[in-house]
Amino acid sequence: MTEYKLVVVGAGGVGKSALTIQLIQNHFVDEYDPTIEDSYRKQVVIDGETCLLDILDTAGQEEYSAMRDQYMRTGEGFLCVFAINNTKSFEDIHHYREQIKRVKDSEDVPMVLVGNKCDLPSRTVDTKQAQDLARSYGIPFIETSAKTRQGVDDAFYTLVREIRKHKEKMSKDGKKKKKKSKTKCVIM
């Protein structure tokens, strides 16, 4: 069974824990209790493949930012979460993405942009803004509501699919490099 290491990042209060708990335990946590770091595991079937999701729910508070490099190193894919009623959390996505790329030393890291709290009427981040940002990053965008469960499975499952595509691409690139290195030079 394939294991996928997913990391949920975003500013404090955007609903990272609520999304994760909704996926794992099928219930909505409405009281806000700032996370330092929590880890969850769940076995699911995605596109006919049974897999184990190892999900790291991270601290959004700035005082825990020193811990970010460590979990970013171990993560295979990242859910970059903002709240649709919090423009600052949307603007912060850029910083999370840049930090992930720096730590992973790669421009090509599996990510999904997630606009959470889409059940709320007080939207300050337009869907088109988020779609445009995701398009500019070359990553999928999904709106979710941890409260109603809308888009929750889709967000995590899409990230797994992005990781699969990335692994497939990397193995193809690896095979191309191996083929090239088999060419021999004969000096007579």
Rank of each mutant, 00 (worst) to 15 (best):
T124I: 06
L113T: 04
E168V: 10
K101A: 12
V14Q: 13
D173T: 09
V7C: 05
T20C: 04
D33M: 02
V112S: 01
S106V: 12
R102K: 15
T158V: 09
N26W: 11
I55N: 03
S65T: 08
E76V: 11
E168M: 14
D108G: 06
I55K: 00
G10F: 03
V8F: 02
V109M: 06
I36A: 01
I55Q: 00
R41P: 00
T58H: 01
M72K: 03
F78W: 06
L79D: 01
Y137V: 09
Y64C: 13
E31C: 05
S122K: 09
L113M: 13
S39L: 14
V14A: 12
G77M: 10
E62A: 05
C51L: 13
T74D: 15
I36S: 00
I139E: 12
F156L: 05
M170A: 15
Q43P: 12
R97Q: 05
V186T: 06
R68K: 12
D38N: 00
I46M: 12
K165Q: 04
Y40V: 00
M67V: 10
F78L: 06
E49P: 12
I93K: 01
S17A: 00
Y32N: 01
A59E: 03
V29G: 03
V81W: 00
E62L: 09
H94T: 13
L133V: 07
E37L: 02
K179M: 06
M170V: 12
C51R: 09
I100W: 08
K165F: 05
I55V: 07
A155G: 12
A134C: 10
C185I: 13
I187P: 13
A11Y: 06
D173E: 09
V103W: 15
L113D: 02
Y157K: 12
G48Q: 10
I84Q: 15
R97H: 14
Y64I: 07
D126C: 06
V14G: 13
R41N: 03
E37W: 01
T50V: 13
V14C: 07
R73Y: 13
T50I: 12
L52R: 05
A134W: 04
T50N: 13
I36Q: 01
K101Y: 14
L23A: 12
A155Y: 15
G151E: 07
T127I: 07
E31M: 09
F141P: 01
C118K: 08
I163F: 04
A11P: 06
S17F: 00
D33I: 02
V29S: 06
K165E: 05
I84G: 15
I55M: 07
T87G: 06
G12T: 09
N116I: 15
K180V: 14
Q150R: 08
T158W: 13
G138L: 02
T20V: 07
K176P: 14
V112E: 01
K5M: 09
F78A: 03
I163R: 02
V125T: 08
G15V: 00
G151V: 14
K182Q: 15
V114C: 04
K42Q: 09
K182I: 13
R102C: 15
D38P: 00
Q70R: 03
A83C: 12
I21Y: 03
K180W: 04
V112I: 07
E98K: 02
N86Y: 01
M188V: 05
C51N: 06
V109D: 02
Q61N: 13
E168W: 02
F156V: 06
Q70M: 14
E76M: 12
E162C: 03
H95Q: 07
F141T: 02
E162N: 13
N26C: 13
D153A: 09
F156A: 03
D126S: 07
T183R: 14
K180C: 15
E143Y: 02
G15K: 00
R97V: 15
R123S: 11
D30W: 06
M170N: 14
I93F: 13
I142V: 09
G15D: 03
D47C: 07
I84S: 14
E168S: 04
G12Q: 08
D173S: 13
D154V: 05
E49A: 11
D108H: 08
M111E: 01
E62G: 08
G75V: 12
N116W: 01
L113G: 02
K16M: 01
D57Q: 00
L113K: 14
G151T: 12
D132H: 06
D126H: 07
S65F: 08
V160H: 04
H95G: 12
L133E: 05
D47Y: 03
D57S: 00
V14R: 15
I163S: 03
D57T: 00
G174K: 02
E107G: 08
L6G: 02
V125W: 08
L23F: 11
G13V: 12
D57K: 00
V44I: 15
L52C: 14
N86F: 02
V152F: 12
Y4I: 13
I36V: 07
K16A: 01
D105V: 03
D30H: 14
I93S: 04
A146G: 07
A130M: 14
S122R: 05
F156N: 03
R161Q: 05
Y71M: 13
K177Y: 04
L113S: 02
L113Y: 06
I21H: 04
M72G: 05
L79I: 13
S145D: 15
D38M: 00
T20K: 00
Q131Y: 05
G75S: 10
K5W: 01
I84C: 13
K88V: 13
S181Y: 14
G60P: 03
S145T: 08
A66M: 13
R149T: 15
I55S: 03
T124F: 06
K117G: 13
G15Q: 01
K177E: 08
N85S: 04
Q22S: 11
R135P: 03
G115E: 06
V160Y: 10
H166P: 03
R135M: 13
V109F: 11
K178D: 11
D119F: 13
K101F: 05
N26D: 10
G138F: 06
E62K: 07
T127D: 10
S181W: 10
K182Y: 10
T144Q: 03
A83V: 02
G13N: 13
I93R: 02
L23N: 12
G13M: 05
D153H: 07
G60N: 01
G174M: 04
F82A: 11
K167H: 07
T58P: 00
R123T: 11
A155H: 15
T58Q: 01
F82I: 10
G10N: 01
K177L: 07
K184P: 03
F28W: 10
D108Q: 05
F28A: 01
D132W: 06
E143S: 05
S65V: 07
D54A: 01
S106H: 12
M67W: 11
I163Y: 01
S122F: 06
T87S: 06
S106A: 11
E98F: 03
L133Y: 10
G15E: 01
K16D: 00
H27Q: 15
K167Y: 04
F82N: 03
S171R: 14
D173K: 13
F156R: 01
I139S: 05
R41A: 04
K179W: 04
Y64S: 14
S136I: 07
C185T: 15
T183Y: 12
S136G: 06
M111D: 01
P140S: 03
I139L: 14
Y32H: 06
A83Y: 02
K88E: 12
Q150M: 02
I187M: 13
G174R: 10
G48V: 05
S181Q: 10
D38W: 00
R73V: 11
Q43I: 04
Y157A: 10
R68C: 14
P110R: 02
G13S: 12
P34T: 05
A146F: 00
